[in-house]
């Protein structure tokens, strides 16, 4: 009798202990994420410092300019990040997409609003990294308010370019029905092509031409270029115009492709 009660108690105690563990897990992720980001940032900074050991400027950029660019690109990385492929892919897999398509609201518009919300949240979550970059790695922000405005507009435009581009890519999942691999593949390409690792001016001309003829850089390298002053403020209107042209092209292409692809929908159960 006593033994049975004891056994019951220990079983209930384990169940009780489970819940704090689950809560702890979310807390842990916040701090771990922070440390992982510090590691990645530190590697970038030490790499660049070592590169500048034997030279004072590369392609006209001094060490502090390059570091500013790299750190800001790191912080504003969420601009390139878009979950559309996973979002649409998962909707497809679970069959939810049917309900979304039947709603009396523009499907693309709905997703854009949601993704802007995600972007703002993600940027807020980068705030600890801003503190780290300023305190540990000497990040300096520009003081000119006009530079900030030019950057903000360019960032919003660039983000929109990537939204439509990701929409185009997400339509591919209607054909491949494979989401995870495709998503990781595109993120990997984005890593270099967005300009997160190297300022565009340092790239050999043919590489830069390729990078600028695909959309990835519009969301990161282009706005961060304005923010760091690598692209002068006087160039801002030209930059915005190019980005608007990108948006129009990508919007058109993605709408057309979506209209074709949606007929291919094969829901994988759900």
């Amino acid at each position: 009798m006593i033994r049975a009660t004891k056994r019951d108690l220990s079983a209930y105690a384990s169940l009780f202990a489970m819940i704090p563990k689950v809560f702890m897990a979310y807390q842990i992720w916040f701090w771990v994420g922070l440390v992982l980001n510090v590691i990645s940032m530190a590697i970038l900074v030490y790499f660049w410092r070592a590169i500048y050991n034997d030279t004072s400027t590369i392609s006209g950029l001094a060490l502090n300019q390059t570091l500013n660019y790299i750190l800001l690109a790191f912080i504003f990385m969420p601009l390139t990040n878009n979950d559309l492929i996973w979002e649409i892919g998962m909707n497809l897999r679970e069959g939810m997409i049917i309900h979304h398509l039947l709603r009396p609201i523009n499907f693309q518009g709905m997703n854009y609003a949601q993704s802007l919300g995600t972007l703002v949240t993600r940027l807020m979550l980068q705030l600890p990294m801003v503190v780290v970059a300023v305190l540990l790695f000497g990040l300096r922000f520009p003081s000119d308010i006009r530079v900030w405005l030019a950057f903000l507009l360019s960032a919003l435009l660039g983000y929109t370019v990537m939204f439509f581009f990701n929409w185009l890519l997400a339509c591919l999942t209607f054909y491949t029905t494979e989401v995870w691999g495709l998503g990781v593949l595109i993120e990997g390409m984005n890593f270099f092509l967005s300009g997160a690792l190297v300022p565009l001016v340092m790239m050999p001309e043919w590489v830069r031409n390729i990078v600028l003829s695909i959309p990835f850089a519009q969301a990161l390298a282009v706005p961060v270029g304005l923010l760091t002053g690598i692209t002068p403020l006087s160039d801002a209107p030209r930059v915005w115009l190019i980005q608007v042209a990108w948006i129009l092209g990508m919007w058109l292409a993605s709408s057309l492709f979506f209209r074709v692809a949606v007929r291919k929908i094969t829901v994988q159960g759900g």
């Binding site: 691999g181 390409m189 270099f192």
Partner: peptide, 12 residues
């Protein structure tokens, strides 16, 4: 796709 995605990350 899985194998090539790792390759693309390294390539970047």
């Amino acid at each position: 796709l899985g194998a090539s995605s790792t390759i693309v990350w390294q390539a970047s």
